[in-house]
């Protein structure tokens, strides 16, 4: 229910930004020699003379019928935005998810170790490194990766070949087939989310390590390993899942930059090229589609929370 409200607001934003300029559209499209009558007719045909509420109703109506608007760029004139963007969406989703999973596999043990040996040399060094990684812009990371591993040492290719297939499960197959080309982009994106997740795990573990139930577990004679895995981590995971859902927009932003550097035609790459060409309908459609993907991701995180936290399961029954 809440996601519907969220999407409603997002669609209003992607509607209102271009709508501020509806008054001038006719003049631009029809040119300087158009008469007043032409302009009035154009505005009438596109409902620009109706109230803003009616225009928004038309916009949402179109969206619900799968019409995200049409391109105004010369190269792709009048092509539906959905047609331009739909092959790119799975590419971006997979490019965001794969590094996240790898980062989780590394960062959770790392964060637990940091918390376990807190304020020791290991903690200080890894904290500094994660601060640097956390502050590194995605593009700098990708560029450094390309410079060192693709140019100076030429181990991995610095560009991704043009992907084939437009289905949802084509990108992972393509990734496996050309795994050498994906080492650098996925590697640099992993490093970026690694820092944040490790930092958060450290905090969450530190929070739960001082709780009474941990002392109880110790008093029962549970081993260090059992206390960590059954009592501390189990509770630390709960906020982590929520944070993962919230970090999705950041992941898509990271993917946008990575696609740009490695020439991978995902959502970000296409959005940037259409932004430079001022293809407003396609950019707005891309923003909306990415927001929808984020909302769905958050829903999945909420469902995962039910799996991780038995209290929610019981409460909702």
């Amino acid at each position: 229910m809440q996601s519907v409200a969220v999407l409603f607001v997002v669609s209003f934003i992607t509607f209102i930004i271009p709508a501020m300029f509806h008054g001038t559209v006719a003049r631009v499209v029809l040119g300087p020699r158009a008469t007043k009558a032409d302009i009035l007719e154009f505005n009438h045909a596109h409902f620009f003379d109706r109230s803003i509420f009616y225009q928004y109703y038309r916009y949402v109506n179109d969206l619900l019928h799968g019409d995200f608007g049409h391109s105004v760029l010369r190269k792709t004139m009048n092509k539906p935005a959905w047609e331009i963007l739909s092959p790119a969406l799975p590419r971006t989703i997979w490019l965001a998810i794969v590094p996240l999973v790898i980062a989780l596999l590394i960062a959770i043990p790392l964060g637990v170790t940091q918390a376990w040996r807190r304020n020791k040399a290991f903690d200080y060094i890894t904290t500094f490194i994660s601060f640097v990684l956390y502050s590194t812009p995605a593009y700098l990371m990708s560029i450094l990766a390309v410079t060192v591993f693709a140019i100076n040492f030429a181990i991995f290719p610095g560009l991704i070949p043009y992907p084939t297939g437009t289905g949802f499960f084509d990108p992972p197959i393509f990734m496996l087939k050309n795994w050498t080309a994906f080492v650098l982009p996925i590697g640099s994106m992993t490093l970026l989310s690694l820092a944040g997740v490790a930092r958060f795990t450290r905090g969450a573990v530190l929070d739960s390590i001082v709780q009474d139930y941990v002392r109880t577990a110790r008093a029962k004679g549970a081993s260090n390993w059992r206390v960590l895995s059954h009592h501390v981590l189990r509770n630390a995971l709960i906020p982590l899942v929520t944070i993962l859902g919230l970090s999705l927009p950041g992941l898509f932003t990271g993917a946008l930059i990575t696609e740009q550097v490695f020439n991978y035609p995902g959502m970000g790459f296409i959005t940037v090229s259409h932004t430079l060409g001022r293809d407003i309908p396609v950019v707005m459609a891309a923003t909306l589609i990415i927001a929808i993907a984020t909302v769905i991701g958050n829903l999945i995180a909420d469902l995962a929370l039910v799996v991780v936290d038995p209290r929610i399961r019981i409460a909702s029954k």
């Binding site: 409200a5 607001v9 997002v10 927009p249 950041g250 970000g268 959005t271 950019v283 923003t287 927001a291």
Partner: peptide, 12 residues
């Protein structure tokens, strides 16, 4: 809702 839009996309 605003948080659901990736920042860079909104900037673009």
């Amino acid at each position: 809702a605003l948080l659901a839009i990736p920042g860079l996309f909104l900037l673009l």
